[in-house]
């Protein structure tokens, strides 16, 4: 049974169709990379699956349960987490307070503030620091930690490495690999195609709201992914 199954997802911004009939499926412990040019509809697709974008349609199954009709907070409580673009931390609250908010899903699971500090050792000393004062990498760690605090079964991450130093990106992916090994399904939006080929189990390339290419990383190249991003079908 798939952890996350999204079928025929469509979404509009006013009269503009941003996502057109996209389907994807994730097994436990699988990492799916969603790549594509800016404006390809990746963020809208994630927000639609999370229930944050209301002008959307499609069928979403989480661990075999249909959550298509649930509002965003009930999807989160069912075990679906989104680390949004720009991280969206609460800047006037401390790191610990931000993490504890993640536990609002009231789900059982292995994650606690202590466990997050173990996974991101650099956060432990920032326990009482205001989230707004952290560096980009630290903020991304808090955002991922906050999502994990809800003990999700599937986690979606938007633009993980945007604006981060290479070291911070490595640290974030190190933590994500650990969660994958724990059986979480991960849906990652990423600009860095090399990273996608290195880490992914599946890759979907989106172009103008549609799936342009669906491929296993071992069967493709950076050039082919880039071409598909701009609507050119690889030979």
């Amino acid at each position: 049974m798939s952890t996350l199954l999204a079928q025929n997802m469509s979404a509009t911004h006013g009269q503009l169709t941003a996502v057109h009939n996209v389907s994807l499926s994730l097994e436990p412990g699988e990492m799916l990379f969603l790549v594509g040019a800016n404006g390809a509809g990746k963020t809208t697709l994630l927000r639609t699956i999370a229930g944050d974008h209301v002008q959307g349609s499609g069928e979403i199954m989480l661990s075999g349960v249909d959550i298509s009709d649930r509002p965003a907070h009930l999807r989160a409580r069912a075990g679906l987490a989104l680390v949004p673009e720009g991280r969206r931390l609460f800047p006037d609250m401390t790191v610990r307070e931000n993490l504890m908010l993640g536990a609002s899903t009231s789900r059982e699971g292995p994650w606690s503030v202590a466990a997050i500090f173990e996974a991101f050792p650099n956060l432990a000393k920032l326990d009482r620091a205001m989230a707004g004062k952290l560096s980009g990498g630290e903020q991304q760690a808090v955002a991922i930690g906050r999502a994990l605090m809800g003990d999700p079964v599937a986690i979606m991450l938007d633009e993980v490495s945007l604006g981060l130093s290479p070291a911070a990106v490595d640290l974030a992916y190190g933590a994500l690999r650990k969660t994958r090994d724990m059986g979480l399904a991960l849906l990652v939006v990423e600009q860095d195609l090399n990273r996608a080929i290195r880490e992914a189990d599946q890759i979907i390339v989106m172009c103008e709201g549609r799936v342009a290419l669906r491929v296993r990383p071992q069967d493709t190249t950076v050039a082919a992914l880039a071409a598909a991003s701009f609507g050119q079908v690889a030979a």
């Binding site: 907070h73 609250m93 504890m100 536990a103």
Partner: peptide
């Protein structure tokens, strides 16, 4: 917890929902 949820809701409603807050 309730106080933090109230603050989160007042500061950024959409993100609060994504965290499972009603």
């Amino acid at each position: 917890d309730l106080g933090r949820r109230i603050q989160a809701t007042s500061q950024d409603r959409a993100t609060a929902s994504l965290l499972g807050i009603n």
